[in-house]
Design a protein around this nucleic acid. Structure first.
Lengths: 359, 359
DNA sequence: CTCCAAAGGGCAAACGATTGCGTAGAGCGT
DNA sequence: ACGCTCTACGCAATCGTTTGCCCTTTGGAG
C-alpha cells in the first residue's frame, strides 16, 4: 500500500465520487503534477509544452472533472479570492441595495465574500475586522461602518468619511443632495421645514448635516432648532423616524415640511404625522433620502433624494478588486463621488396657505 | 541563509507586522510545532505536557499574536468552517429576515458563509452549487431555491418542498397559515375574496395554494377562478403585486377582500386598489404574508400572516452546523415545521354592506 | 566534431497546520 | 542490573498547489 519511492506516480486509487486532484491527473496521464499545473494555469512556462500534450491535459481535466482545491491554492499563492464585507445589518433599505451592487461586482470578478453585520457595536466591528483578516481575505469593503483601527489590508469604504491612510471612500455628493431637497421644498413655498438627522453612529450624519446647513443658508432659510430632531436608538427599522417625528410634533412648533434622514425613517414619520391627524402632503410635505425599493410604493409615494446605491456597491467591488490585483497601477484615490438625483413623487406639495401644522 | 539540516528551528527571521505562524512560535520557544499545535488545540495528546510548558506556549501565542492560518487548517482537516447560502436575491422582505437569522446562528457557531443570489435563474443555481463545492464549503443552506441536482454536501433548505435524500427542510405550517387568514376574513363576513398566488418559481407557491384551497373548503368558501391572479415576472419588488391586482380589477368581478402571496406584493396591491379609487380597508380588505419589517408601517398598517423568518434562519443555521459536526447523532429529519401567527392591523375590516368593489 | 540553445518536462521545496508514530530519559519494581 | 511504564516531547508525512531550478534530448550553428 505504501507508495514506492520511485517509478510510479502514486495517486492512491481514488474512488469515483471524490474530486480529482492534480495527483489524480498526473497518475492518469503519466505526467508530473508540475507540468499539468502549468498547463492548466496557462503559465508562461507552459510555452515549451507541445500543443498535443496540452490538449491531452485539458481533455483529462475535463474527463476526470478536475477541480482545483481553493484552500491549497490560496495557501500557496497567498490569495484567497475572498473579500470581507462589513455592514451594520442586513435590513430593508440602504444596505440591501448596496449589497446587491457589491455582490454583482465581486462575483463578476471571481471573488466571493464573507458578510458580517456588526449592529453598530464597536467591539463587534473590531472583532469582525480581525476575524476577516484571520480568514485570509484579500481585502475588505466596509459599508456605513466606522473603522476604528486601520485594517492592514486593501480596503474600500462606502459612506465612511473617516480618514484612513490609503483607503478609498465611495461617497455621495452631499452638497448637491441637500440642495436638491431644500430647493425643491423652498421652491414650492415652504419656509418652516423640520429636519430629522441621522443617528450619531451613522457615518453620513455629519456630512449630510453640514450640507443641509449650507443649502439652507444659500436659500436664506433659517433652521429652527426646535424643528431639528435626531434618530435615536440602534434599531434599524422605521421606529426611530416615528418617534423623532412625535418629538417634533410635541415641540408645538409649526412646520409645513419634513426632510428625513432616509426613506425608512421617512416612512415612520409619515405614520406619526397621520396618527396626529395630519395629511401628507396636504398638511406636511415629506422628503426622504435614498430611494429604497419600497419608496415608490408608499402611500403616498415618497418624494426622495435618490442615492445610486447599487452603483456605489458596484464601484466599491470594482475598486477593491483593482486594489488587490494591481496595487500600484491605480494609486488609491481618496474618494469617489457619486451624484444624487431628486425623485419627486406624491409626498410633497406646496404648503397650506394659512394653517397650523400642529393643531 | 539556507537552513542547516539539523539543530536550529529555523523560522526565517519574521518581520514584526507579519502574522505569527506555528513555526514562529516554535523558534521562539525552542519547541516543536507539533507540541505547540497540540497544546493550542487542547488535543488529548497534550495531556502529557506539563502545565508549565503549556503556560509558556499560551503566553507566547498571546505575545506574538499567533493566528492559525485558516486555509492551511482547512486543507489539512478537510473542514473549511464555511457554509454556502443560496438565496434568490438580497431584496427587501423575506430574504432579509431569514438571512439575519442565518447569520446569527452561523457566526455563533464559528462559521462564516458565502452568499450567492441566483435571481431565479436555473443555470445560475446549478453553477452556484458547484462553485460552492469548489470553494470547499462544509455545507449549504438554500433559501426559497429549487435545487435541481443533489448537492453532495450536508444541506438544509428553507421553504423548499423538493424531495431530496437526506436534506432537511425548514417549512411553515401552511395549513395553519391559510386557515388563519381565511378564517379571519370569513369571520368578518367576507365571502368574495380575491387571491394572489406566488410566482411559479417560488417554492412556497404550490403548498400554500393547496393549503388555501383546503382552508376555503373548510370555511365553505368558493374560490372564483376569475378572482385568482398570479404574480408574474422575476422582479423582486412590489410591481408584480401591483400588476396582479390590476388584472383582478380588470376582471370586473366583485371582491371585498384580497389575500396576497406576501407583504411585498400586498403593498403593491394596496397601491393598485387606491389608484382604482378603492379605499383600504373600507372597500377592500387586504391580508399580506410574512410580516416583513415594514408591514407595520404601511398605510394602513398591514394585516398579515406572520412567518417566524428570523427563527427559521436560525434553525437552518443550527441544523446545518449539527449536520456537519455530528452527522450520525442527529439522523436527518425530513422537515422542521414552524408555526405562523396572525397579526391583525389596519388593512382589514368587515366588508361594505352592499357595495361593488369594482365600480 | 563541438558547442549551445531550445524543447519538454521532472524534482522538490515551499505554504502552515495536523497527527500517527517513535523515542530518550526518568523512575520504579524485582 | 534488567525490564517496564510513564512523561515529554520530536519526526516526518500529509492535505493539494505552485514555482524555482534542474535535467535530458534533439537540432542547428559554427
Amino acid at each position: 500500500m505504501t507508495s514506492t519511492k520511485t517509478g510510479d506516480r502514486s495517486g492512491k486509487s481514488r474512488q469515483p465520487g471524490a474530486p480529482a486532484s492534480l495527483a489524480t491527473l498526473s497518475q492518469h496521464l503519466g505526467l508530473s503534477v508540475a507540468a499539468i499545473s502549468r498547463v492548466l494555469n496557462r503559465t508562461p512556462a507552459a510555452k515549451s509544452i507541445p500543443k498535443a500534450t496540452q490538449d491531452r491535459i485539458f481533455a483529462a481535466a475535463a474527463e476526470l472533472n478536475y477541480r482545483p482545491n481553493v484552500l491549497a491554492r490560496g495557501l500557496r499563492r497567498g490569495r484567497s479570492m475572498t473579500v470581507g464585507v462589513l455592514v451594520p445589518e442586513v435590513a430593508e433599505g440602504y444596505t440591501t441595495l448596496v449589497l446587491t451592487g457589491i455582490e454583482q461586482g465581486l462575483l463578476q470578478a471571481g471573488y466571493f465574500y464573507f458578510l458580517i453585520s456588526h449592529h453598530h457595536r464597536e467591539e463587534l466591528i473590531d472583532r469582525s475586522q480581525t476575524m476577516l483578516v484571520d480568514r485570509s481575505v484579500d481585502g475588505m469593503i466596509a459599508v456605513d461602518t466606522p473603522l476604528r483601527h486601520h485594517p492592514h489590508l486593501p480596503t474600500i469604504t462606502v459612506s465612511c468619511p473617516d480618514e484612513h491612510e490609503g483607503i478609498t471612500n465611495i461617497v455621495l455628493n452631499h452638497r448637491r443632495a441637500a440642495e436638491l431637497a431644500i430647493d425643491h421644498l423652498v421652491g414650492m413655498g415652504h419656509r418652516e421645514i423640520a429636519m430629522i438627522k441621522g443617528q450619531s453612529f451613522s457615518s453620513d450624519t455629519d456630512s449630510r448635516w453640514q450640507a443641509i446647513r449650507h443649502a439652507a443658508a444659500r436659500a436664506h432659510l433659517v433652521l429652527e432648532p426646535k424643528l431639528v430632531a435626531q434618530l435615536e436608538g440602534d434599531a434599524p427599522g422605521h421606529e426611530p423616524g416615528y418617534f423623532a417625528t412625535q418629538r417634533l410634533l410635541a415641540s408645538n412648533t409649526r412646520f409645513t415640511a419634513l426632510f428625513a434622514f432616509n426613506d425608512v425613517s421617512a416612512i415612520g414619520a409619515v405614520r406619526a404625522l397621520r396618527e396626529a391627524g395630519l395629511r401628507v402632503p396636504q398638511d406636511v410635505s415629506v422628503v426622504g433620502f435614498d430611494d429604497v425599493q419600497s419608496a415608490a410604493f408608499q402611500n403616498p409615494g415618497l418624494t426622495t433624494v435618490r442615492q445610486p446605491l447599487r452603483t456605489m456597491g458596484m464601484l466599491a467591488a470594482e475598486a477593491i478588486v483593482q486594489r488587490i490585483t494591481a496595487p500600484e497601477e491605480h494609486p488609491p484615490a481618496k474618494q469617489i463621488v457619486v451624484d444624487p438625483e431628486l425623485v419627486v413623487r406624491e409626498s410633497t406639495c406646496p404648503p397650506p396657505a394659512k394653517r397650523l401644522a400642529r393643531v
